[in-house]
Design a protein around this nucleic acid. Structure first.
Lengths: 186, 186
DNA sequence: GTCTATATTCCGATAGAC
DNA sequence: GTCTATCGGAATATAGAC
């Protein structure tokens, strides 16, 4: 796997999460790599190829994180905490998450990119629902809603709070995360 | 005020909330109006003029709604319910809200459009914080978080659930809203 | 295998016709 | 006051050089 290819994916993801899918161009990426924009087309013939690869990479990264947490025997609290830390890091880097960046552009994406974004969102929601369900059974989480609904609300809170923080500078993102966590405590 | 101008704003808002700010063109709007794209420039010289006007219109609409609710003597429950109904309508029409559409594109907007989007978000959050505060004092709302934090979480839940619903078709948006409401009940 | 020169299309925007 | 013909540039993408 070429290093240029990996850098393109990295830069593409950066631009999606800061400017949005429809606001960045191959030119942006090629300039930063010191090559011509057409060179990027060698690695990713079309922009939808690139978009799809970026989402696929993110799915892989997320699944590796889950596997890692499972093999380390993380309990539900530790897992949720690790997940939320990803969002705190995003906020620190002034980036949105992939789902929150591409979601609003969904109708402009190709069918293959849409399919990957659907998969990514499903993977996250399924995992979040499962740790909420298990945590509730063990009585280490307390909530009255259906786990699937609660998972959607928690993810939504994390996703859109990043977006709102970008608009309103003074929003304290860590306090938001702290409140989400506290809400689940017995 | 010209009817063409109003239609342009209406179509522009539609496109922002379905495709995103950077994915629609003056061509899209002009074609639907049966005129040339340059005619749109007569009403809005630049795209940032149009974007700014669209957000301004939305602020005005929101403020009129608040005034209307106040003059009708709506209590906090009725006000929150009216607000959430806007989001349920958005979901039914398969549109995002303005804040959730333009938020991810924030870094690509002009300074004037940014300023209006900041104002719009502040107006919503300020209002939501105030009814939460008042409702808590009257003991008709129950929550332990700081009202400002709670307002941000509620708005985030509404905003991003629209985005997630677009990706995952089977999400039951009304159940999300119902859960948000139930969570505040004594 | 890697990249450049180039084509094509579409974008936002200006100047000027009616 | 309203709209059209047209421009300059940037976008994605192809064909072909090294």
């Amino acid at each position: 796997m070429s290093v240029t290819r990996e850098k393109i994916i990295e830069l593409g993801e950066h631009h999606i999460r800061t400017k949005g899918y429809n606001a960045f161009s191959y030119q942006d990426i090629s300039t930063e790599l010191g090559i011509k924009n057409a060179a990027v087309h060698y690695y990713f013939p079309t922009k939808e190829n690139l978009g799809t690869s970026i989402v696929k990479t993110n799915i892989q990264r997320f699944e590796e994180m889950i596997d890692n947490m499972h093999s380390r025997g993380f309990d539900e609290w530790k897992q949720l905490d690790t997940f939320i830390k990803i969002y705190i890091k995003s906020h620190r880097e002034q980036k949105l998450c992939i789902v929150g960046s591409l979601g609003p552009d969904f109708n402009t994406l190709s069918e293959t990119t849409k399919a990957e974004l659907i998969k990514m969102t499903e993977v996250i929601l399924t995992w979040l629902t499962s740790i909420l369900t298990q945590g509730k059974e063990k009585q280490i989480f307390v909530f009255s809603e259906d786990p699937q609904i609660k998972a959607t609300i928690i993810l939504s809170s994390l996703v859109a709070s990043l977006q709102l923080s970008r608009i309103i500078d003074k929003i304290d993102y860590k306090s938001i995360c702290h409140a989400i966590i506290k809400d689940l405590k017995p």
